[in-house]
Design a protein around this nucleic acid. Structure first.
Length: 486
RNA sequence: GCCGCUAUCGUCUAGGGGUUAGGACGGGUGGUUCUCAGCCACCAAACCGGGGUUCGAAUCCCCGUAGCGGUACCA
């Protein structure tokens, strides 16, 4: 494997603004970013928007937002649609040197050519039929109103492709065809603009997904025809769905959108850590990496060759890890927008200490920040349902059992009402004293009370809940539950 | 169809001519506990197949097979 060239590293992430930033794009951005930072180089964001029909400003904005959220910051930025004159100049050069030519193929003709090629099991379809037109023929086509495309001439010598991850190989030019480099509407195409900009921007390493592997020899041909320096390539394997297929907007919708994970309460640190391990590993010991550590340790040589499946369970694990890492103040800050979004909290936040108390009570139970909503809504409202399954199991499904539960709840209510100080220790002692004296199973009493106060059979320590809810609220909810039981 | 890439537990992966093939996620079992989560302990789980080379192959080579990617006037 080749060593990194001594010159200053310059890499780029070149998304097309045709949708949100997706998981694969985020990983490509990260790999580029880490590689740049590791080598003290420059990370460039280049918007490849030569497809004017599909590119949108909204998409561009979302890509910026997602990258910023992930703290993948770029040092320089370019937008290809603003660089038309540069590409036009190179196209003229190609035309003049005879390395490219106008092609007057109609869409119908192209379709027919492709059909034929397939039927004949040919490797390439377009046969270069417009390569050498007489001036008369050109005139005729122009008179017909045909708008030509520009095609690059594929030479007949083998093309060597070096890849830092996949190794080197020679491409038989017979497997390549004269690619369209300028559309009939005059807009240059990806293969052209990409390799020109890589040279213009002095990109040293092109790190991109393997879906671009087959574009690489075409781009090398263009660069060679233009006398441009070719960057080193590193094609990183694809991010796959659980069925082993490439994750794409087309097939997976916003399941692949980085923004969606942000909205669901995933932390950027978790996303970064998750995504970097899709194809890259350090050793057999470490799973958790901070960004600084990644910058220090990231290396193209440790990127694998095969695709990696996106495993949401692993992401969830990482996310809970990073949430648990937050102290309660930071965790509260992180969670407040989710309470607000759910309408449990208005903009004025209110009693900050109380909120932090809730967050502390919830402890390590959050997988995503959004989990705070279902797990704590009962703190904000008593308009919850008593979970039927829990009711059946802990409140009882016979009249005798329900009577018994009513008795327990009534007793506890009384105990709590008469308690001298409403704090955890005192309450705990009083309840245990009660259950021990009456020979009631702790779990039975606690679960009965838990359901009365929260509607559910699971959650944080009940004593935390009781104290956080406060005496008044607890003494309101117990009778309500008893009534429900009657 | 054609061109290309890839192949270790379900998943992410480490390793790599001689290992009980390691870790993590997920799963399972037990313990702790007022429930859940967590934590602790333990368990199951893999080198795609066939040929070579070799004393020895999961590892190197070849051939298959399978999967995936590309096959646009998208990127």
């Amino acid at each position: 494997m080749k060593k990194v060239a001594p010159e200053t590293v310059r890499v780029r992430m070149a998304p097309s603004p045709t949708g949100y930033l997706h998981i694969g794009g985020a990983r490509t951005a990260l790999f580029n970013y880490l590689f740049a930072k590791h080598h003290n180089g420059t990370f460039i964001l280049r918007i490849d928007d030569t497809d004017t029909a599909r590119s949108t400003d909204a998409s561009m904005q979302e890509i910026y937002d997602s990258l910023k959220w992930l703290s993948i910051n770029w040092d320089e930025q370019y937008i290809q649609s603003e660089r038309r004159n540069i590409y036009d100049r190179y196209v003229s050069q190609l035309l003049e040197s005879g390395n490219a030519y106008h092609c007057y193929c109609t869409p119908e003709e192209l379709e027919e050519i492709r059909k034929q090629a397939r039927a004949n099991k040919q490797t390439r379809s377009y046969d270069g039929r417009y390569r050498d037109l007489t001036p008369e023929a050109v005139q005729r086509f122009v008179a017909e109103g045909r708008k030509p495309t520009v095609r690059i001439k594929i030479p007949d010598t083998p093309i060597r492709v070096d890849d830092l991850i996949l190794g080197s190989r020679n491409i038989d030019p017979a497997t390549l065809e004269d690619e369209v480099i300028v559309r009939s509407n005059g807009m240059p195409n990806y293969n052209l603009t990409s390799i020109i900009d890589d040279a213009e921007m002095q990109i040293t390493h092109v790190i991109r997904g393997t879906e671009h592997l087959n574009n690489t020899p075409k781009q090398i041909v263009i660069a060679n025809a233009l006398g441009l320096k070719v960057p080193q390539f590193a094609h990183i394997p694809l991010v796959l769905d659980s069925g082993g297929r490439k994750m794409s907007k087309r097939h997976h919708g916003d399941l692949v959108a980085v923004n969606r994970y942000r909205e669901q309460g995933y932390l950027p640190e978790a996303m970064l850590n998750f995504v970097v391990r899709l194809g890259w590993s350090y050793d057999d010991k470490q799973e958790i990496f901070s960004v600084d550590e990644l910058i220090e340790k990231f290396d193209l040589e440790r990127v694998g060759k095969s695709g990696s499946v996106f495993d949401i369970k692993k992401l969830e694990w990482l996310n809970s890890h990073y949430i648990n890492q937050l102290d309660s103040a930071a965790r509260t800050d992180a969670v407040i927008p989710f309470w607000q979004e759910a309408g449990l909290l208005n903009n004025s936040i209110g009693d900050r200490d109380w909120l932090e108390g809730i967050v502390e009570a919830v402890g390590e139970r959050l997988t995503t920040l959004q989990d705070i909503v279902p797990q704590t809504s009962y703190f904000f409202t008593d308009a919850f349902e008593y979970e039927p399954k829990a009711v059946k199991k802990w409140w009882g499904n016979s009249e005798e059992k329900r009577e018994r539960t009513r008795e327990i709840l009534t007793n506890i209510s009384q105990i709590l009402e008469e308690i001298p100080t409403f704090d955890i220790e005192t309450i705990e002692a009083a309840i245990w004293k009660y259950t021990d004296e009456k020979d009631i199973k702790r779990v039975a009493a606690m679960q009965a009370l838990r359901i009365a106060l929260t509607g559910a059979s699971f959650g944080p320590s009940l004593f935390d809940i009781v104290v956080l809810l406060g005496k008044d609220e607890v003494l309101k909810r117990i009778p309500k539950a008893i009534e429900h039981l009657t």
